[in-house]
Amino acid sequence: MTETGTTETGATETGTYVYAVGRNLDEELLTRLDGVGDAPVRVISHRDLDIVVSTVDLDEFGETALRTNLESLPWVEKTARRHDEIVRRAAALTTALAPFRLVTIYRSDDAARARIEELYDDLTPALDRIDGRSEWSVKAFNRARTTTPAAVEAEAPSSGVAYLQRRRAELRSRQEIAADQQLLAEQLLRDLVPATAATRRLAPQDQRLTGRVEGMALNAAFLVDDDRSTEFFALVNELRARYPSFDVELDGPWPPYSFAVLDKP
C-alpha cells in the first residue's frame, strides 16, 4: 500500500520513503545502511519521535511508476526484503518501533513530519503498547492421516448404490476430521494466549505461499514480552506434544508488524 502526495514533474524529483517510527534511535548506526533504491537511510525527528526514512527517485517510486512496479513480483520481493531489513535493523536499536507499510512515500521530509503529527495521538499509545515486546508467528498444519482399513475396499463394490454409500461415508469422515481439526486449532490458540500480551488470528495462507501440501489450520501472530520469550518458546514446544495432529511452526522474534501498523491510511 502506498501513502503518497507526490507529483512527477521531472526525472530528478524525489520523495521521502518512510520505514518506521520509533523512539531514541541511533542515527549514526542507521545511516550506514542503504535503503530501497540504494539510497542512504536517514533519521528525521518530530517531537519525541524518530522517523526512519530514505530519499527515493519518483521515476521508480512515484504514483505512476508504482502502478507498474507493484505488478512486478521481482521488484516487489526486492523492495520488501530491503524494507524489512531496515525495519529489523531499526528495531534492534530501540524497544519501541512502529513499522510502516511497504512503499509509504511522501513528497518531502516536511510532508512526512506533517503526517506523523496527524498520527501522533495514535502512534504514541501504539509505541507504548509494543515497548519491550516482539512479534512471534505460530502456524499449525494438519498432519496427513493414514487411511483406516474400514475406509478402503479391497474389492470393487458390488453395485453402484454400494459405491455411492461408501463415497458418502468417506466424505462425512473427511468433514468430521476437518471440523475436529478446526476445534483443536481454536483450543491451541486459547492455550497460547496466557503467555502473550496480544494476539491476532490471521487468515490461513494459500498452499502456494506455504509450499506445503498440508492445509493450514491456524495462522496467528502473538505479541510477547521480550523477557518472556523463553517461556513462550517452551510453551509452544509443550503444546506440540499435546496436539500431535498438528505440525506446529514457530517463527520470530520479529518487529511487531501485526500490532504496530496503524489502521489509518
Rank of each mutant, 00 (worst) to 15 (best):
I116T: 08
G215Q: 14
E214V: 06
L49V: 05
S258C: 09
A112H: 01
P40G: 11
Y243E: 01
I105E: 10
K264H: 03
T6R: 09
T146D: 15
R42L: 09
V224K: 01
A112W: 03
T104S: 13
G37A: 09
F232K: 03
D48H: 03
G22D: 06
R242H: 09
E231A: 14
Q165H: 11
A91P: 04
H46N: 08
A20R: 08
T104K: 06
L171S: 09
S54E: 10
L93V: 06
R228E: 11
I44H: 04
A144V: 13
R145H: 13
R32Q: 15
W254C: 14
F232S: 02
T104Y: 07
I130N: 05
I116F: 02
A65D: 09
S229Q: 10
K264E: 09
R201M: 04
K78Y: 07
G10Y: 02
L262Y: 01
S134T: 02
R172C: 01
M216V: 12
T9G: 14
N219F: 07
L192A: 00
R167D: 05
N219E: 10
L164M: 09
A114V: 05
V21M: 01
T79G: 11
Q181L: 15
Q205C: 00
E3F: 08
T95Q: 06
V76L: 11
L119V: 08
G10D: 06
F61V: 08
L218K: 03
L171P: 00
I130V: 14
L70Y: 07
L119K: 08
V87C: 14
A98N: 11
L192T: 03
E28A: 10
D263N: 12
A20W: 07
E117C: 06
T2Q: 08
L25F: 11
H46W: 13
T196E: 00
F222G: 05
T210W: 06
R89C: 15
V21E: 07
S258K: 10
T2D: 05
N24L: 02
P74H: 01
D110Q: 14
E60M: 02
A178M: 05
Y106K: 14
E28K: 06
G22K: 00
T199A: 04
Y163E: 12
F246S: 05
V103E: 05
T95A: 04
V213E: 15
T31Y: 00
V248R: 02
R101D: 06
L171C: 01
G252R: 05
P99R: 12
L164F: 10
R107K: 08
I86E: 08
Q165L: 05
Y106C: 03
A221E: 03
R67I: 12
A156W: 03
N69Y: 13
L102I: 06
G10P: 02
D34Q: 15
A260K: 01
N237C: 07
L189I: 00
A162C: 02
E85T: 14
